[in-house]
Design a protein around this nucleic acid. Structure first.
Length: 549
RNA sequence: GGGCUCGUAGCUCAGCCAGGUUGAGCGAUCGGCUCUUAACCGAUAGGCCGAGGGUUCGAAUCCCUCCGAGCCCGCCA
């Protein structure tokens, strides 16, 4: 039935028409939200508030992937809002988890805290937060704030303390044999056919990962445990030997991950959770626990690929040189990082600082689509690009377009810019190239990002080792330069030097640029010398010649 | 052993969800920007979309099989 002009190419040459309805803003998130709403309707659940969830790791520095998980889940909540439903992201901190490994970059002394809940370990950065876990979580929450997301924060530690999961804990413990069978059935892990899926905090040594819980007493809802040690990430944590019995509703422990998601989903009424493929097995188990033990249909899922660095290796929370959102924000805008995260829901993507220029430019492209600055023949294509832009701004896009300058151009100018006059130099060049004709909105920020980049990734200037002939050339240029006094005259010095000695200009310029910039190419000399100052250039050239001698 | 992703121009990738004449950036070649260069502008070259089958009026796109590359899980959380 569709054949109006706005459907463009969807009318085929043979006259077949294809129905096309753009869902929401036309992005993956709109599609997922739409499916989610349909699913909930079929299940007959309330649509008053649709909750999505992201687990916030609290045992290491949050990296780009941690933010990616939270933002993908947030975007589905946004998609629900676009459809007209109330929705929110639950940002759930896994701060009841124990410390399993000292994160790279932190002192070895922290090893004494291995096995303790991260909420009971002091903040390694000093007194800025009340615990190790709180410090790590706050980093991710800060990134979420910068990204523009809103969320409902919950602490696992507090949830256990307040008894939020009591009903679920009881249901799981009362059926722990069936739970053990499900785990074995799904992933072949036999551990929980013998043990209870609950980690007790040892009453004597206060550690959570050294205890084994074996006997459950339903009438008192207590479990017996023994602190006899456990292997954690290849290291043996020796137990203190204590034997005891605790109330599982006391908050003195936590559910194993193999069953905790399920408890969270039902207790917090979670309807959607995207997850990285590294925890695919746990999610599969939890789906069955949720359905078969808790009698509640688990949330809709989407599995996505892990972020990888340029070498294709997983970015690990505990590996060194963690690529955190804060690092990205130093060289690129929050929206450009949102774009990296949002542009594909499931596919592999690299998460490297090297991607920042590309994403800054790509954001300009989708901004053009949103503001109608580019013609797109296809309604769907246009909707997807401008929709993506809106999601990058969390559906609150700015009213005015920003200045668009290729990031690599600003970088190049930033590299060439004379010290102390970076901003003036870059701005004047960009004006010369005609980039600032329409607006300078956002220019300062862009220059700032590029300057940060150059400051942090400055390439070592290669040793300027002039040959005898090159030294002669430099000396000849020096002769001319001493006579010159205006930008116009500066511009002529290389040519005059060439003429006077019967060289070609192309023999002279590379040498001059190498002395001044360490490269064989560079900006127009006249204005550049005038910006740096004649005296500075003369002394640099003299030094280069002197070094040779 | 279980699962996932990718394979499209010399290179890096986009397009695939929701089928309708494959695009971009870089690189290459040539030209323009009143003298070299960066940048910018213009033009040209370059792809049986990994292979084979299926569905369809029509497949890079959906389904199956195979080949190749990579990742996750197979401790624990």
């Amino acid at each position: 039935m569709m054949s109006s002009s706005r459907d463009g190419r969807f009318m085929t040459d043979k006259g077949h028409s294809i129905s096309l309805n753009i869902i929401g803003k036309g992005t993956w998130y709109d599609k997922a939200a739409s499916e989610l709403v349909e699913r909930e309707k079929k299940l007959g659940r309330s649509l008053k508030l649709i909750r999505t969830e992201s687990g916030l790791g609290a045992s290491g520095f949050p990296h780009i992937g941690s933010l990616g998980d939270a933002l993908r889940n947030y975007a589905v909540a946004l998609g629900c809002r676009v459809q007209g439903y109330d929705a929110e992201l639950i940002a759930f901190s896994d701060d009841k988890d124990g410390l399993r490994k000292v994160p790279a970059g932190l002192p070895k002394e922290l090893e004494k805290w291995l096995g303790y809940s991260v909420s009971t370990i002091p903040d390694p950065a000093g007194d800025c937060h009340k615990s190790f876990g709180a410090h790590m979580t706050s980093q991710l929450l800060a990134a979420l704030d910068t990204s523009g997301a809103d969320y409902n924060f919950m602490s696992g530690f507090e949830c256990y303390k307040q008894g939020i999961f009591d009903k679920e804990i009881l249901a799981i413990m009362n059926n722990h044999e069936k739970v053990g069978r499900i785990i074995q059935d799904e992933i072949g892990q036999e551990k929980y056919t013998e043990e209870l899926p609950y980690f007790v905090v040892c009453e004597k040594c206060s550690r959570i990962y050294t205890t084994h819980a074996t006997n459950y007493h339903p009438e008192t809802h207590t479990i017996e445990y023994e602190c006899n040690g456990m292997e954690v990430r290849g290291n043996w944590l020796e137990g203190c030997g204590h034997k005891g019995e605790v109330d599982i509703l006391s908050g003195n422990g936590k559910l194993s991950w193999k069953v905790e998601f399920a408890a969270r989903w039902r207790a917090l009424d979670i309807r959607f959770e995207a997850y990285g493929k590294d925890i695919a097995d746990s999610v599969r188990v939890n789906d069955r626990i949720c359905r078969e033990i808790l009698g509640w249909e688990p949330p809709m899922h989407v599995q996505y690929e892990m972020f990888t660095d340029r070498g294709g290796k997983k970015i690990s929370k505990s590996a060194g040189n963690v690529f955190t959102p804060q690092v990205w924000y130093r060289y690129g805008s929050p929206q450009s990082l949102n774009l990296l995260i949002f542009k594909r829901f499931v596919g592999t993507k690299s998460g490297s600082v090297l991607d920042i220029p590309q994403h800054m430019d790509e954001l300009d492209d989708v901004e053009d689509a949103y503001f109608g600055k580019v013609k797109m023949q296809d309604e769907m294509e246009k909707a997807q690009a401008s929709g993506l832009y809106e999601y990058c701004w969390m559906i609150k896009p700015p009213k005015e377009i920003e200045v668009h300058v290729p990031y690599n151009l600003v970088l190049k100018l930033a590299r060439l810019a004379p010290k102390g006059q970076e901003k003036t130099f870059i701005e004047s060049k960009l004006r010369e190239y005609g980039y600032l004709d329409k607006t300078t909105n956002g220019l300062d920020k862009r220059i700032g990002y590029a300057l940060n980049w150059v400051e942090d990734f400055a390439e070592e200037l290669p040793e300027i080792n002039l040959t005898e002939q090159e030294a002669t050339i430099v000396n000849a240029v020096l002769v001319e330069l001493r006579k010159a006094n205006t930008p116009e005259e500066y511009q002529g010095v290389a040519f005059n030097a060439a003429k006077a000695n019967n060289w070609k200009p192309r023999d002279v310029f590379p040498v001059v640029y190498r002395v001044l910039l360490g490269k064989t190419q560079g900006p127009r000399l006249g204005p550049y010398i005038s910006l740096i100052g004649k005296e500075g250039v003369i002394s640099e050239m003299e030094n280069a010649v002197k070094k040779r001698a």
